[in-house]
C-alpha cells in the first residue's frame, strides 16, 4: 500500500494525474452511459461516460474543465474501477466517501486514491474530490432504474 506519510509522493501522484489524466476524452458510442457533473463550490464541469457489459465496468471516460483535485481524483478513479464489477465499484465509492469524511476506510481498495485523504483541510475542494465518484454513483444508480 502507498505510504500515507510521504507528502512528496502524494503530491507527485496528484500532479501526474492532473498533467497526464488517464482515460480523458469522450467517445461517441451509444452503448456508454453519460452524466454531466458540476459543483457549486468550483467551476468544475466534467462529463463522465461508462461502458458496462455483463455487470463489469469495461470503460470509464471523462472530459471537461476542472481544478487539480477534481481532475486528478477522477483520473485515479477511472483506473481504479475499469475492470471492476458494479458491486466492487459501489464498495470503492463507499470507502472513498468514508475517507473524505475522515471515517475509517479500507485503504487497500482505494490504492492511489488515498492521496486525497487530507483534502478536507480545504473545505471548498471536498466536492471537487468527490465529483468523479458522485458521477459514477449516479450512473450506477441509474442502472437500477
Amino acid at each position: 500500500m502507498l505510504s500515507l506519510n510521504d507528502p512528496m509522493i502524494k503530491r507527485s501522484i496528484i500532479m501526474d494525474h492532473y498533467e497526464n489524466p488517464r482515460n480523458k476524452g469522450l467517445v461517441d458510442d451509444p452503448r456508454y452511459l453519460k452524466v454531466n457533473m458540476n459543483s457549486e463550490s468550483c467551476i468544475d464541469d466534467i462529463d463522465i461516460q461508462i461502458l458496462i457489459e455483463n455487470n463489469i465496468i469495461k470503460d470509464f471516460r471523462f472530459d471537461g474543465v476542472g481544478c487539480t483535485i477534481s481532475t486528478a481524483s477522477t483520473s485515479i478513479l477511472s483506473e481504479l474501477v475499469i475492470g471492476c464489477s458494479v458491486e466492487e465499484a459501489y464498495q470503492i465509492i463507499k470507502e472513498y466517501d468514508n475517507m473524505i469524511k475522515e471515517e475509517p476506510f479500507n485503504s487497500d481498495l482505494l490504492q492511489e486514491a488515498v492521496v486525497f485523504k487530507d483534502v478536507s483541510k480545504q473545505a471548498n475542494r471536498i466536492k471537487c474530490a468527490m465529483i468523479g465518484f458522485n458521477g459514477l454513483l449516479e450512473l450506477l444508480d441509474s442502472l437500477k432504474g
Binding site: T68, K121, R125, C128
Partner: peptide, 11 residues
C-alpha cells in the same frame, strides 16, 4: 488553475 490558487490563498 484559478480554483487551486483559491485553496492555496485560503491555506
Amino acid at each position: 488553475f484559478c480554483q487551486d490558487a483559491g485553496s492555496y490563498f485560503n491555506s
